[in-house]
Amino acid sequence: MSSAGSSPHGPTEAGTTASGGSGPDAAADVVRPLAGDDDRAAAEAAADPPAKPTLLEQMGGPMGMVDSAVPVAVFILGNTLGGLGWGIGTALGSAVVLAGIRLARRKPITQVVSGIFGVGIAAFIAYRTGSAKGFFLLGIWSSVAYGAAFALSILVRWPLVGVIWELVNSRGTAWRADRRLVRRYSLATGVWVLVFAARFFVQNFLYDQDEVGWLATARIVMGYPLWLVALGITVLLVRGHLRSRPTAAPAAG
């Protein structure tokens, strides 16, 4: 006589099912850990978003310095060796080559277009004026426009350094309520006004003196190198105040 508990298969099947070895419950037990792994991976991805490009990277990085100097250098070389036509041709050719390299490096298309556009306009002005120094007129008067815009932004209490900094860091316009921060941004914007003023006065003087070689040198030296100095001063002025600002207290749970 056998009882319900002494069946040769009953206890074994019951024990196997309870331990998750077979049946629908067992399949669910296998799926749950996998789903949990997916959730954890998604949570880790959300907690560690891709790093934003730095301001230097947005300006083109170290290669951006090379890209900005090459067309100027080859223009002067071509103009010296073969005249204005050769200078214009080599500058445009170098801009096209650099654009191809930018595309191959998967750089933003805006950098490609702006590079060709800037060199193209400079070459066109040189062609229309019939003078090698005309190649630098766009840069000279661009400094006036940028300097005026930065100075005006200080006067209307919307310093452009603050606008750009907060835009890059996605913090909106709440910074304008902090008077000390607005003052810091205004000082930093003033640094850039001085940069643009220096670029204009130095290069315009060399333009008037017909010093094309020195004008090209000033264009390169007062480009990215001077910008990096101004950028360093900007960071020192702004970050010191941002670090000293009290952080918001966590909400009581």
Rank of each mutant, 00 (worst) to 15 (best):
S3A: 12
P8G: 06
E13Q: 12
G15F: 15
T16D: 14
G21T: 12
G21S: 15
G23S: 05
A27D: 12
A28Q: 10
D29L: 15
P33C: 03
L34T: 09
G36M: 10
G36I: 00
G36D: 09
G36A: 09
D37G: 09
D37I: 08
D37L: 14
A41R: 15
A41Q: 14
A45D: 14
A46L: 14
P50S: 01
A51K: 09
K52R: 11
P53W: 05
P53I: 12
L55H: 13
L56S: 06
G60T: 03
M63F: 15
V72K: 00
V74H: 03
F75R: 05
I76F: 13
G78S: 01
G78T: 00
G85C: 13
G85R: 11
W86T: 07
W86I: 07
W86Y: 09
G87W: 00
G89V: 03
G89Q: 15
A91K: 01
G93S: 01
S94R: 06
S94D: 01
V96L: 03
V97W: 06
I101V: 13
R105Q: 03
R105M: 13
K107D: 04
I109T: 10
I109V: 15
Q111E: 12
V113C: 06
V113K: 00
V113S: 04
G115D: 01
G118I: 05
G120C: 05
F124Y: 07
A126Y: 00
Y127A: 14
T129R: 08
K133E: 04
G134W: 13
G134F: 11
F135Q: 02
L137H: 05
G139K: 01
G139D: 04
I140M: 12
I140K: 08
W141V: 11
A145E: 03
Y146V: 05
S153C: 03
R157A: 07
L160W: 10
V161W: 04
V161N: 02
I164A: 15
R171S: 05
G172I: 04
G172C: 07
W175S: 04
D178M: 07
D178H: 09
R180W: 08
L181W: 00
R183L: 09
S186L: 01
L187V: 02
G190L: 11
G190N: 11
W192S: 02
W192A: 08
W192C: 07
W192L: 06
W192I: 06
L194K: 04
V195Y: 12
A197R: 10
A197T: 10
R199S: 07
F200R: 09
V202D: 03
Q203T: 04
F205D: 11
F205N: 09
L206N: 05
L206V: 04
L206E: 02
D208K: 11
D210N: 08
V212N: 03
V212A: 00
L215I: 09
R219G: 14
V221G: 15
G223Y: 13
Y224G: 09
P225H: 02
L226H: 07
V229G: 08
G232Q: 13
G232A: 10
I233D: 14
V238C: 11
R239H: 15
H241N: 06
H241P: 00
H241Y: 14
L242T: 02
R245A: 08
R245W: 04
P246M: 10
T247H: 03
A251N: 12
A252D: 05
G253H: 14
